[in-house]
Design a binder for these strands. Structure first.
Lengths: 190, 190
DNA sequence: AATGTAGGCCAACGAGCGTTGACATGCCAG
DNA sequence: CTGGCATGTCAACGCTCGTTGGCCTACATT
């Protein structure tokens, strides 16, 4: 049993509204400037409700940033296209909602957020690289290289909003980044 | 005359101490959590002195992040090694002092900081790409691609401190990233 | 119908922030 | 010696924040 019998509570809707508002605010403002008062206002409830359900601001952040990158199984597809698939997946994931932007914004200014990012990327990208990396002991290093390029594009495109990075189409981004990621994943150590 | 006769003031040392402390704090904490009071304490003066010399917090940040990437003239060296030279230069620049880390931290959470980063990278990297990019109208896009990889590595290595990214040596980082940057700069459009 | 409890609001707290203006001290020109 | 300006300190302001505890309401169980 993964769920130990969950009776649907009347407050579930409220909790979800708080989480939605929190994700938006954290993504837009980062940890410090995203205030509990503003989040509560967005969710149309009192700030004290946030405390009741999530304990404190950090608890709210932890709950709001439970992240699953939802990386696809790459073992099944031709190894040559792993880079393109991975880049495309991340673009979709990043544009889907504000969770990843929030994680990036908070990870930069908050140590707990940074720790969260380290864990998410090490585990989830690491799992992928372990399957395709030609050098067994180097999977985590390859994962870091892939993360550097993907997070760098996310940073310039979705956070800093460099004009040229924003104006590139999805296909153009994939065309440029896929060979880079492919090389980081599958090339021999230089 | 670039300097209209500057008599050395006794307060120059204090101003410099404030700027040093500000850079450290902005780099370590980001814009919101770097307080004027803490900066003043580091510089061993009263917070009101910061206001006197820099007007307000944003003025202090602007003064503390007057950035010159000091990119070398790349025209003189063989085109094949432009990528490696550029990556190496940025690693030096990033490890030299906290200015770039501060700029990155602040740029992520503060719109004025983001604007500053856009300007710095567009002008200074753009100037380099304009000289080596094979497609005339694409220099700014190439600059954005280069920035995405370089900022991504800076993010994972110096801000988020991913284990594997931190443990790589300078030469290893260059060996992996140089071909990427080289391709972004000089390859034909894919 | 009575009652316990979960859901929600309101007012207030203590702390820290950026910022201000009045006041003390030292230096140099006249 | 004296005045004025640069340098620096001190105490306070108004504000916003995270957080707390008391109180009200409505539903579900008995």
């Amino acid at each position: 049993m993964t769920k130990p019998a969950a009776p649907p509570r009347r407050s579930d809707a409220t909790k979800a509204a708080i989480l939605d508002a929190a994700r938006d605010r954290f993504a837009a403002d980062g940890y410090e400037r995203a205030t509990i008062r503003a989040i509560a206002r967005d969710a149309n409830i009192d700030p004290s409700m946030v405390m009741r359900y999530y304990g404190n601001k950090e608890g709210l952040f932890v709950a709001a940033s439970a992240i699953d990158l939802r990386l696809p199984e790459l073992g099944a597809l031709p190894g040559k296209h792993v880079g393109a698939v991975l880049v495309g997946h991340f673009l979709d994931r990043w544009e889907g909602d504000g969770v990843l932007t929030a994680m990036l914004r908070v990870g930069v200014t908050n140590e707990a957020g940074a720790e969260r990012m380290r864990a998410v990327f090490a585990e989830q990208i690491g799992a992928v690289t372990a399957g395709v990396c030609p050098v067994p002991g180097e999977a985590s290093r390859r994962a870091a290289l892939v993360a550097s390029q993907i997070l760098g594009m996310a940073l310039t495109r979705y956070v800093l909003r460099f004009g040229p990075a924003v104006e590139m189409s999805r296909d153009e981004v994939i065309a440029w980044l896929a060979p880079t990621v492919q090389r980081y994943l599958t090339a021999e150590t230089p």
